[in-house]
Design a protein around this nucleic acid. Sequence first.
DNA 1: ATAAAACCGTGTTATACAGCACAAAGGTAG
DNA 2: CTACCTTTGTGCTGTATAACACGGTTTTAT
Lengths: 233, 233
Amino acid sequence: MAKKELTEIEIAECIPDLWMPLTQEQREFLAKNFTVQKFKKNETIYCEGEKPQHLMCLLTGKVKIYKEGVGGRSQIIRVIKDKEYFAYRAYFAEEDFVTAAAAFEPCTICFIPMKAIMELLKVNNELALFFIRQLSIDLGIADERTVNLTQKHIRGRLAESLIFLKDTYGVEEDQCTLSIYLSREDLANLSNMTTSNAIRTLSNFANEKLITIDGRKIKIIEEEKLRKISKIG
Amino acid sequence: MAKKELTEIEIAECIPDLWMPLTQEQREFLAKNFTVQKFKKNETIYCEGEKPQHLMCLLTGKVKIYKEGVGGRSQIIRVIKDKEYFAYRAYFAEEDFVTAAAAFEPCTICFIPMKAIMELLKVNNELALFFIRQLSIDLGIADERTVNLTQKHIRGRLAESLIFLKDTYGVEEDQCTLSIYLSREDLANLSNMTTSNAIRTLSNFANEKLITIDGRKIKIIEEEKLRKISKIG
DNA sequence: ATAAAACCGTGTTATACAGCACAAAGGTAG
DNA sequence: CTACCTTTGTGCTGTATAACACGGTTTTAT
């Protein structure tokens, strides 16, 4: 794990939520316990069953958190965008990882030992409240997701994923091309369906002029109609 | 909401996780902000869309947390047993409730204003760590659940629910009768299936001598085989 | 006690989706 | 350039499970 020297200002820009609540002394403590690592496209960041050791903050790139289910079918549980924290849940719960993480595209990730975080948590309540808030938001999303994935039909689930990707990673300059290029398989794993059905349903959406597809490039044309399809299931 | 006078010792026994980390002064503060309310069987405790105001601790009884999905189909997200806390997630996330809660059976619930909890959180880190830990555990369960509900077949899902009910609420003196008596509909909503299929699959399990059923009374006979069915999906 | 409602059980039908096979296209490596 | 592997796309088939209908039973309410 490569150690990298950064100025305090650079660090602060990378991890504002974590940095802001800290005192000067706490910041110096954190700066000492700070490493940065790069990951290639599709590279695994951590695996199911491993022991969590570090809080991770995604500095640049895009990450998927997923889980292998029955018969090797993989389900994408959530996705991380830059400046977001992850990999801390299992440590707090005193469990091994129940999910795995991999890079959608080349990533730079900041690693902070969870032991250091625990030290800070003992003396800094604002930091604790940050984690409480973050975990609470994620738990709400997970609850929504459980119902959506189980009850909606294929079109609803795919429409929801497309909207979700737009809301999470945003669009390119043209205001409609999703700025993440996923394989059909990843899209299927995000939407709880087989790859064939992701392909088919995506084609249907294109035929209905709700989107256009050009390889992995997806343009959202009729966002409102997609939202409606997602909503009614 | 009826105010009820309790001795400190009684309170401490009701809500140990919350009480233990507190100083004497903090305990007095909490004791002042403490109300208890009873709920009848099937009574709603809170609804989707409402504003969360209180941390709730289930003193006695059993509670379901559920969510209405598409077409009025309801999905039980998690269940609460006595001495467990709930209803705090939405407040921490600064959201309205995304779930609803109702009593499986007659309940006594202790209400503590979230504002009081927030006050305590500002000055007591152990309390913050309690919530961090609890939220982390629940988020892990939610992740597991998403995959199980979406990928397992009907038999796997029902088997899992039966095991889950045993692990959560335990059994009666005979060591095998589940100590919670659910309607077939609730069992279906817990397992993401229709009521008819819950009935049918339950009968199948009974024919295969994995369980016995007598109305809502369910005896687990072959726990290991059920666990296996749950595991392989 | 009687009516009404909720719940339980079973059979039948309909369908959404998975599974598989295979072809075409695109990317990658030697 | 050629060969190979991965990804995309399409058609066909099978099946798990939802949806519906209906009769019997238990619980609740008056």
